[in-house]
Amino acid sequence: MDLYITSYCLVRDNRVVVNDRLVFYQENILKFADFIKAVYQQGQINYPKFYKMDAISKLGFVAAELVLKETSTEGLDSGAIGVVLSNASSSLVTDIAHNETIKDRNGYFPSPSVFVYTLPNIVIGEICIKNHFKGENVFLISESFNARLLHDYVGELFENGRVDACLCGWTELNGDIFNAMTVWVTRAGFTNSEAGQSYRPLLFSAENMNVIMSHN
């Protein structure tokens, strides 16, 4: 079965690339919080819950929204849209934030809105809530970006008719170092014609995901 990457998004350092187009660039490297806020605002995503998310969810959410802007989910059953994401550091940045709230016995105020984000799959929940995706979903951990793992997992979902479309990618944040890559995968025929973009779909393969990831 032929599957295609009909759009992709890269978020890293000081820039954002969507379908080979540089859509955001800052000369100076910003702190992650300022950077992602600037990308969110420029992307006109308009979703106030964004501000309540932890850093890793903001990263994954923005990378997902920018891919989804380039594609149409019309005609797809919400239960047949999957989300498969991965990273290396799980929710470590937020784990450390939660840990700070319980370090001191005299200032012991664990915060539910921090704690809830100490799971890597919460970003999947945020993406699903915004877009009403209800299909297969999983968060995988690997030491570094593993295109083969993602490809095989997602490929199986299509192969056995579990999904008709899937958001797939890597959303890594550790300290102020971050790197996100999302791709929208569909069967042949479900291309991004409606968005009217000139991007030519790539075959969904581990090799092509590595090519996208190594984009400069």
């Binding site: 105020f109 664990p110 915060s111 539910p112 809105s113 809830v116």
Partner: peptide, 13 residues
């Protein structure tokens, strides 16, 4: 609901 719990923390803190 998470905000409600967060407000409980605010009152205590």
């Amino acid at each position: 609901s998470i905000d409600a719990l967060e407000l409980i923390v605010l009152l205590e803190k």
